[in-house]
Design a protein around this nucleic acid. Structure first.
Lengths: 169, 169
DNA sequence: CTTGACCTTGAAGCTACCTTCAACGTTAGG
DNA sequence: CCTAACGTTGAAGGTAGCTTCAAGGTCAAG
């Protein structure tokens, strides 16, 4: 099988396959007399394995250390270890994502919770201060510092005239 | 406030702050006569906002288009839109991660489910074929093609002598 | 014999997000 | 006055994972 056919069968581009060979992810392959690479059927499986592992979150480096030269002889211990650690990684990432999601949802809610007597600017300020207060890890500062950051005054006197012009925000 | 102090307060490095200015994420800032950048208190909040947004999954490009020149005047519509889309992005990623996780868990199980009368190589083959059969999207091939890929024969005659030497796999 | 589709190589480019370096000017403290 | 810490700049480097390009060689069909 030439590289073009392998590319079609695996869904990868030829350049990508050559790239994988270059970085040592694929072992150097047999050549025909004319210099063309010639692949065994198994190569399709190897590439499928690589893309599957990639989608599961493995880097090419990780995959290289895990992929045995011979698909029939895996390093069982290393493999199971890597799989287990990757599952843990995914779970950690899931936790972070869940946090981000809640954070964003709360932010949207908070923005929409503008009191009627508050103008856009004051609301923006309220939301911002809330956010940085709730997530102090964004800054390496104490809550004291955050209070310091609050440069506006708290008097919320909104003149009736200005209230009329308040844009929907 | 000079850049060093801002860096301390925000938890960012000075180089990173200068970088943000260079790419237009931070507006160009006032300079003292000696050329030193001088920042207002607000800058800490802006940087906190940026890192928070980053952690929520926004790219610097996205943040740049969202950040108004003046923290008191946001483009409400664009912002809410971006927030909503980002939440959807996160949920999509969560779904993908959940899939990956289940996939990996099932893979671990499958590896461990080696029948007693099967040696490591055959088990590896079994697991691989299962995997590629269950996830044909890894390859742009039909299930017919996958069957074609199966180059070993199915006779599982394992000699007793070899069975003794079977490594724990 | 020509055309077009394939194959080869090495080098360079691309994205995102920074860091590091070199070479230099400024400032605060002792 | 000296020194250490800080500031400035532009350019280059680094990571991950490829793609693209240039400049060729090979092959099958018409």
């Amino acid at each position: 099988m030439k590289i073009g056919e392998l590319a079609r069968l695996s869904g990868l581009t030829p350049s990508r396959i050559r790239f994988y060979e270059r970085i040592g992810l694929l072992k150097t392959v047999d050549r025909r007399p004319n210099g063309y690479r010639t692949y065994p059927q198994q190569a399709v499986m190897v590439l499928g394995l690589i893309t599957t592992a990639q989608r599961a979150g493995f880097t090419l480096d990780e995959i290289r250390t895990l992929l045995p030269p011979d698909l029939d002889h895996w390093d069982h211990v290393t493999l199971m270890d890597a799989l287990t650690r990757k599952i843990a990684d995914i779970e950690a990432l899931q936790a972070r994502l869940a946090q981000s999601r809640v954070h964003l949802l709360r932010l949207v809610e908070d923005i929409q919770a503008r009191p009627d007597d508050m103008d856009c600017a004051a609301n923006a300020h309220r939301v911002l201060t809330n956010m940085l207060a709730e997530h102090p890890e964004a800054l390496d500062v104490t809550s004291d510092d955050i209070r310091l950051l609050d440069t506006t005054d708290r008097r919320q006197s909104v003149s009736p005239g200005r209230r009329k012009k308040t844009a929907p925000c």
